[in-house]
């Protein structure tokens, strides 16, 4: 069996391998190379060294501002998404009536694409704010809150499903033993349920952190950075630098590489710390 698998290995890995190469590895390496270049289109690059990296931070404070805004958004969203998703998962694993219906309803928003979602929420939020004589671009706070609400709405359903799977996998005997020993509801939650679903928490944190950090479509559709780039997240800033300004293509590319390093570092750190707390199954 092992031998057969080895023999046919190239055949099975080939389609994915090629796709990975064409759609990820080659662009990725090219992207890193381009970040050291001055270029107009991706095919006419000239090597210039670290200039782009310096310019990314010195030309203006857009990138730093965008990163800071991204961090604020991510911290709030990750906490709220995970707490609400976990609470919903708890509620929907108690065998209440209509559980399946609720699970479907909460999951639905996740099926709508980011751009569409951004415009839908723009209409909703503006519809409310109009009554008070404001619009979502009046103040950066509205944009931030709007993005957080939108992201919660979209991601809670997905995270909830993962938590539900985790909770359902907790062996009944543990729960019953705890109950017999006289553990209260809160004690059960913190000492039995949460440690048992640690793998789910790792996954959910990973997904929410990286997705929030990389958020682009929703940001573009909801506010496009208005007012005055104050609600511009890092990915949108990179896009605007690359496409919006002639002569800044390399700078945009350099920002993208820096951004990649930041996201990768945060994701790895998070996996390391939550992974340590996982209980051996």
């Amino acid at each position: 069996m092992e031998k057969t698998l080895k023999r046919w290995f190239p055949v099975f890995v080939l389609p994915t391998g090629i796709a990975f190469l064409i759609a990820f590895l080659i662009p990725f390496i090219m992207g890193i190379y381009l970040s050291f270049c001055e270029f107009r289109t991706v095919t006419d690059a000239q090597f210039v060294g670290f200039v782009n990296y310096v310019r990314a931070f010195t030309e203006n404070s857009d990138f730093v501002n965008a990163l800071w805004f991204t961090v604020k958004f991510t911290v709030v969203s990750v906490i709220s998404i995970n707490i609400i998703a976990f609470a919903l998962a708890l509620a929907l694993t108690r065998g209440l009536k209509g559980t399946n219906l609720f699970r479907t309803v909460f999951f639905m928003p996740n099926l709508i694409g980011g751009i569409v979602l951004g415009y839908i929420w723009q209409v909703i939020i503006n519809g409310v704010l109009y009554n008070f004589g404001y619009s979502i671009t009046s103040d950066a706070t509205y944009g931030l809150l709007g993005l957080i609400v939108l992201m919660n709405w979209q991601m809670i359903g997905y995270m909830m499903i993962i938590y539900i799977a985790g909770i359902q996998n907790i062996p009944h005997d543990i729960l019953e033993a705890a109950k017999v020993d006289g553990a209260g509801k809160i004690r059960m939650l913190f000492n039995i349920i949460i440690p048992s679903v640690m793998p789910s928490i790792t996954i959910c944190l990973f997904l929410t952190i990286t997705n929030c950090f990389k958020l682009f479509d929703q940001n573009l559709a909801l506010t496009a950075g208005a007012p005055a780039k104050q609600t511009q997240m890092a990915a949108l800033d990179i896009y605007n630098t690359f496409y919006g300004r002639i002569g800044f293509e390399g700078v945009g590319q350099a920002k993208a590489v820096v951004f990649f390093l930041i996201v990768a570092a945060i994701a790895l750190l998070q996996l390391y710390f939550t992974g340590k707390r996982e209980v051996e199954g």
């Binding site: 723009q122 503006n126 619009s135 208005a226």
Partner: peptide
Amino acid sequence: TQKTLLGS
């Protein structure tokens, strides 16, 4: 349109 709504 009211000034504050021009942004949309």
